[in-house]
Amino acid sequence: MTESTLRVENLRTHFFTRQGVVKAVEDVSFSVGAGRILGLVGESGSGKSMTGYSIMGLVDPPGRVVAGRILLGGKDLRTLAPDEMRKVRGNRIAMIFQDPMMTLNPVLRVDTQMIEAIQAHADVSRAAALERARDALARVGIPSPQERLSAYPHQFSGGMRQRVAIAIALLNKPDLIIADEPTTALDVTIQGQILFEMQKLARESGTALIWITHDLSVIAGLADEICVMYAGRIVEHGSVDQVLDAPLHPYTHGLIDSVPSRGRRGEPLRQIPGMTPSLLDLAPGCAFRDRCARADGACAEDPALSSPVAGRQVRCFHPLTQSAVA
């Protein structure tokens, strides 16, 4: 395997609340290489967004990253001083958020919000920064970028705002972009356009991309690799084709199965029984066992990541075999 842009090793992010410790991210490891797209999939509260914030160093108290290494180009971000970490944010790693209506500051013009992102990292004149901002807007497909620079966010549609956010993320040519469900709030045609642009940009510029989502259909067309998260842990990891065609973990199987499909029209929609467990003082053992048809006594202990098939990992005592899926 080639040198990866980002390697996360045994990351743990815990929240120390009055009620107890919430282990939002527990022993998460993955890596993503230049020009590659990693899909981070899971339900709400599975810790996928918090993994993104942990990498960015943006976990708010009472939460904090308690263990692990976050290696960007071989350098552990956790050892950086706050101001050095600030220089990494928005420069080497950029992040795009879910709701484009909320991520741009409503009272600042788009050019202000773009110029400050450039000038935070480089000693550039206003005019030069403005030029870069305009080029970035043009690159993400915003028509008449020169005029749109002096507009306010509320003068853009949702899709256009997300393009502006992506343009801001691209400004400093980062090595890695973390996209936290950036198309969830958009309608399908706009989502398609944005996905296409992002894929193209990642391939062309060699930027590594972590795409956080709960939507498997987005991942199917976009990502190279996939990590499925459940209750703060990665439960399955592999290439997109492998994981989606032949899931090993019962949870992944349940997720794929609950996507409505045309072949099963008229049947009741399938779902995973039960609810995601509360992460507050989570009991040891497989967190999915209460919802799992294959669970037995062995599942009361923590399953380790195993590799039953080459190049794939799964955290389960009873992984599905090819025959069981069909």
């Binding site: 944010r89 928005g90 420069n91 958020f97 879910q98 709701d99 991520t103 801001i168």
Partner: peptide
Amino acid sequence: DYVKFARAKGLS
């Protein structure tokens, strides 16, 4: 979110 995004841009 706009505050988190501003911090994610690396602003002081």
